[in-house]
Simulated assay, not measured.
Amino acid sequence: MFYVFSNPQAIAEHVSELLIAQIQKKNDSVLGLATGSTMEPVYEKLCEQVARLNVDVSGLTTFNLDEYIGLGSDHPQSYRYYMRQHLFNRLAFAQHRTFLPDGLCADPVKQCEQYSGQIQQAGHIDVQLLGIGNNGHIGFNEPGTSFGSRTHVVPLTEQTRIDNSRFFDSLDEVPTKAITLGLQDIMESKQIILIATGTNKAQIMAELYESPVTEQLPASVVKSHPNAMILLDEQAAQFLPAEWRDTLES
């Protein structure tokens, strides 16, 4: 389940190859997508390989993990904007099948119900990409979130807002709430790929490896999935004890 790679670029190449194999096997695959700096090398490599191999992505459906409440799709820090910049506008996706929550919706609670329903109607997610927060959150599911949660509105913790403030001009501009895919929605995916890179993820990855499956560390639920991969670069794996590292594959 745990795999260590030399650097983020090696992870990106591996994940891109997995995604292309999935698309070639099932050209109407449903992909669960994530945002953030961890995913940028993955999307860059995927764009390169899709172009080089002439892979048809027009039949894909995508669902993103989350979106800030209060940001419209044209806001530079919205996740819709991120996805357009890094993926959707670079490949021939059918835009009407690229789904993210609407940060300006009138009724966020109702939209959460609809979003989970859309994923179920699509036959669930074939491959879900995940990053991990420094406290073990996935999506915006913070410690203590029920493993049975569906897509929901979440108040962002102060630490999460501080972590994300580097993308904004100031902490005051960081939204205080978001819509996030629930942990049950995530776990119903047919395959999960969790990626962690960099020294700032080293401590949480050591905790994740050692931790039991507990709601106090949301990402630990991935360890109970029958088809999950947790991919680390050398920096993110640096605090794993030697006896653990010997069990890892690279």
Rank of each mutant, 00 (worst) to 15 (best):
F2N: 01
S6W: 06
N7D: 15
P8D: 03
S16Q: 08
S29I: 01
A34Y: 01
S37Q: 11
K45T: 14
L46H: 03
C47G: 12
V50P: 08
L53A: 11
N54S: 13
V55P: 09
S58E: 06
L60D: 07
L60H: 10
L65R: 11
E67Q: 13
G70H: 06
H75I: 02
R80L: 04
Q85N: 14
H86P: 03
F88H: 12
F88M: 10
N89Y: 09
Q95R: 11
F99H: 15
L100W: 00
P101D: 04
G103P: 10
L104E: 09
A106K: 15
K110N: 07
G117L: 12
A122P: 11
L130I: 09
N134H: 09
N134R: 15
N134K: 15
H137Y: 06
G144M: 12
R150C: 06
R150A: 04
R166F: 01
F167N: 12
D172V: 00
V174Y: 00
P175C: 02
T176L: 12
K177M: 15
L181W: 08
D185G: 09
I186W: 11
E188M: 12
Q191S: 15
I204F: 04
P212T: 05
E215C: 07
P218E: 08
S220N: 09
K223S: 05
S224Y: 00
P226A: 08
M229H: 13
L231I: 00
Q235T: 02
F239H: 14
L240G: 00
P241W: 03
A242C: 02
A242S: 13
R245L: 05
